[in-house]
Computed example of a mutant assay.
Amino acid sequence: MPYRSSMKHRVQIALAFALTFPWLVSFFLKIQYLPHIEAFLSGLAVLGSAFLLSWAAETAEMDVPRSVSLAAVALLAVLPEYAVDGYFAWMAGKVGGDYIHYATANMTGANRLLIGVGWSAVTLVAMLKTKRKEVELDKALNLEIFFLFLASIYAFILPLKGSISVFDSVVFVSLYAAYAYLTTKSEREEFEPEGVPEYLCNLPAPRRRANVLFYMFYSGFIIFISVEAFSEGLLGTAEMFGIDSFLMVQWLAPLASEAPEFIVALYLVRKLRTSAGFNALISSKVNQWTLLIGTIAVIFSISSMRLAALPLDARQSEEVLLTAAQSVFALAVIMDRKVNVYEAAALLVLFLIQFALPSVHARIILSIAYMALAVPFLVLHRKSVVESARYVRSLAKR
């Protein structure tokens, strides 16, 4: 690797570590800050850790069996998001009150950001790079599409019964387990590291593995000591400035944990690896829409010291409904493995509308709009729906 390129990557690694240092020092020195400063510093630590974890996970693909890497790498990449949501679910069981709302807020916000911003941005950037009005996606996405479709359809049950129960957790976790197992049998794009992982992969094997292990353990430690301060700092900031704490948790918390995924995906698209970039985001969506939502009730029950369903009030039910409707529409759009400029714009615009119309009725109307738009796509792409099911069945028989 050219010296200038390797120097650039070393600087990027140093910057990621630098983001974690202010909070690391503050934690050990027990320095107290105002809520917004605490949220900022601990949020930077989560962001830096997320980058290090993402690079380590991708580099690890060079040394671990493919059957392990495909499922584990995607899971590690969304660990920061799991940590934040897990904290709110734990506090919901311990303290109750508004924390019950925050667990759902963080989960729905993260899922909607992935589609509304992530999927649309990757598609639009790819079109700009290739100067085409349509992007073709990998046929192997049949697997993700199938399991996301099942999870999205099941998710409509949650607002109807007003809770996320342990039984729901069993369903969602089982979907993820089946997906992870079948992923090991699917055909994927060959591992081609880019950016920092490319630099790490060019290191001698002992040094490379040592770096990967250190990044993973260091990132996990930083996330562990940061997640409570970040979460509570956001709530304190919202109270200090008179901001809706639900919205703070729903959108600002996922931004810090999701940023590396967006950046990595956009980097791959810039290298004209559109399918690889899109695969990274849709794999994260599968993780978050199955395993993340599935662990909420489990953590809530453990924290409560009893089997308990996480209750959903009217607002949370609407948020889950809207998230499920958005997922179905997004899947209907990509069902034929093609996305044009109008479809990508629709994903982005419909996502942004919710901020202009934040009322209860608006969320319900937007959910209906998503489903109304999804139906024609599902009818038009009905053969692709069958193709996805056949593809998954063929994998199961291998």
Rank of each mutant, 00 (worst) to 15 (best):
M107L: 14
G43F: 05
V25P: 12
F27D: 09
A110V: 01
E81H: 04
A77P: 11
P65V: 02
V68Y: 12
G86K: 04
L29Q: 10
V84R: 08
S120L: 12
I115R: 13
L75G: 10
L75Q: 10
S54C: 10
S54R: 12
E61M: 15
P80C: 01
T104G: 08
A50M: 05
S69K: 03
A74D: 05
V25S: 06
E81C: 06
V117P: 07
R112N: 12
L52W: 00
G96C: 04
G118K: 15
L29H: 11
S69T: 07
K30Q: 15
P65Y: 03
V84T: 07
G43P: 12
V122K: 09
F88D: 11
G109H: 09
F27W: 15
Y87W: 08
S120G: 11
E58D: 06
L114H: 13
G93E: 01
L70V: 14
S69L: 05
Y82W: 10
I31F: 09
A60V: 07
A110Y: 00
F51T: 04
Y102C: 01
T104M: 07
W90Q: 03
G43Q: 04
N111D: 08
L29N: 12
A57D: 00
P35D: 00
L24I: 04
S42Q: 03
G109D: 01
P80Y: 00
V95A: 12
A92P: 08
A39C: 05
V84G: 05
Y102G: 02
S26Y: 04
Y102A: 01
I115F: 15
A89T: 01
L44D: 01
G97S: 08
A60W: 10
R112M: 13
L75D: 07
M91T: 11
V84F: 02
E81K: 09
F88E: 11
N111A: 07
A50S: 14
G96K: 07
L44R: 07
T104R: 07
P35I: 02
L47Y: 02
L53K: 06
D98F: 13
A45E: 00
A50K: 08
G43I: 02
N111T: 11
W119K: 09
G86H: 02
A89P: 02
H36E: 12
A121M: 00
Q32E: 03
T104V: 09
G116C: 11
F40Y: 14
T108C: 13
S54N: 14
E58F: 08
M91I: 05
R66C: 10
N106H: 09
W119G: 03
G93D: 00
P35F: 01
E58C: 08
F40I: 07
N111Y: 13
L29I: 01
A105G: 06
L29R: 13
S49A: 03
W55F: 06
A39G: 00
G48P: 01
V64C: 11
E81N: 09
H36F: 14
F27R: 12
A77T: 10
D98S: 13
V68S: 12
H101E: 11
L41A: 10
I37M: 12
L70C: 06
L53G: 05
V84K: 06
D63C: 14
P80T: 00
